[in-house]
Design a protein around this nucleic acid. Structure first.
Lengths: 243, 243
DNA sequence: TCCTTTATTGAGCTTGACTCGAAAATACCG
DNA sequence: CGGTATTTTCGAGTCAAGCTCAATAAAGGA
């Protein structure tokens, strides 16, 4: 009995180890050569198994890549949530900045994976799955935006999905742009300005305090009344002198 | 001589017609089935030529697709430039709005092509070409932004490429988002709010006038006149005392 | 009209994803 | 342990699709 249980356990572990080996090899080969450039035979060789074995774990090459991407995006989502959980600051814009910083850096560092994800957008049946990765990840942004609105730091009249799309899309494209035009050494240096600009852009338009930008009339009123008082004093002085 | 010239002409025309037929067929098949799903044999059949003939016009399937995309992006760039040329308004933000409107609509309508472009991002040698399409198109945005800065309507301290990336990226992702989550009937209706929000977002942060948000001069004018009056009273008082 | 040059063709070559029957490994049972 | 059933692994073989190329057709030129 005991031996049986142990055997089952080790057996399952063995299978899992093998599956992980396949996934690791696949990840490396896909990143190295892209989807079409990757040879299933090479993945098998690197995982030290027969080519046919892969097909008893995954239906097809495409599904194997999907598993790799799934793993990657799940990791991203967890990391993003961890960043949100770990940050001490309560303020919406501080949290937004932290998320932006994390996101931008991640997208740049993992550009390979992002491109792979795009590469899988063809076969219509797979598109939906590919979308789900993203949707799940973007949900982290949605959550933060909703909270910002609840706390009254994000304009109540802001359409959430629109704001989120602007924020997410701007960062994603900025990442692509940085990656495209800058050499690797400048990547890190370019990130902060981009994040800062995004945050101040959002503060300028979406910050709740900017809804009523009335130019502080109270101060003017106070000045005005002081002048009136002065004027009266003058008048009384004037009268006294003229007497 | 005359016949020779005519023959050459018709011959060239014939070749061009054939090339166009291939391109047309390829475009249709690529959009219908994506890059990997497209069969070269089907393209040949639709263009009414032998499969081998395609390879005397284009090196490979990938290059054929590149030609299709080239044509598409060139068209986009021309159209965008035409929009910019045709718009009467001189103001930067009005022009920006027109461009945004055009861009958003275009990206949604031609989502197939955009996805195809992404799909070709793998083979490293081709990436550069794929980038060039985009760069050329984005140049239209750059030009507008530069002009806005020259006219003093866009903050002088704005970093141009950053602002452009935010603008372009936000619109592109918004388009994807609209296309992803809305049904076709709502596409058009969703476009205007997104564009409007982008414009007011940019006005709020990048508008030059927001550098000095002078608050209601009338009040200041009133104060100033009061001071003038006071000053006069002083003068008259001064004169009387010195006498 | 005949020869040269160019264009077209589709049968076949090559490559790579995927199948499948057999063999090896493992589990189960007396 | 030995034998049998079940599961897992394997890689040679199949098939499909991009691409080549020798043969053929068309065009050009004298």
């Amino acid at each position: 009995m005991a031996t049986k249980a142990v055997n089952l356990e080790t057996q399952r572990a063995k299978l899992e180890r093998k599956e992980r080996a396949i996934l690791d090899a696949a990840r490396a080969v896909f990143i190295e050569h892209g989807f079409d450039g990757a040879r299933v035979s090479e993945i098998a060789r690197r995982a030290s198994i027969g080519e046919g074995t892969i097909y008893s774990y995954y239906e097809s090459k495409a599904e194997l890549m999907l598993a790799v991407l799934q793993q990657f995006w799940d990791g991203l989502t967890l990391e993003a949530e961890a960043v949100m959980a770990s940050i001490k600051a309560e303020g919406f814009f501080e949290r937004l900045q932290a998320l932006a910083q994390y996101h931008l850096n991640t997208v740049i560092v993992n550009a390979d994976f992002i491109n792979l994800t795009f590469a899988l957008r063809r076969n219509n049946s797979e598109v939906s799955v590919s979308r789900d990765h993203l949707r799940h990840y973007v949900a982290v942004f949605d959550q933060l935006f909703r909270r910002g609105q609840d706390r009254g730091e994000l304009r109540k009249d802001a359409v959430l999905w629109q704001a989120r799309d602007v924020f997410y899309g701007a960062l994603e494209y900025s990442a692509r742009s940085i990656e495209m035009t800058m050499d690797v050494n400048r990547h890190l240096r370019q990130q902060k300005p981009v994040v800062d600009q995004m945050i101040s852009l959002f503060q300028a338009h979406y910050g709740a305090q900017h809804q009523a930008p009335e130019p502080d009339n109270s101060a003017l009123d106070r000045l005005s009344s002081k002048l009136d008082q002065l004027s009266e004093k003058f008048d009384s002085l004037d009268k006294r002198l003229s007497r």
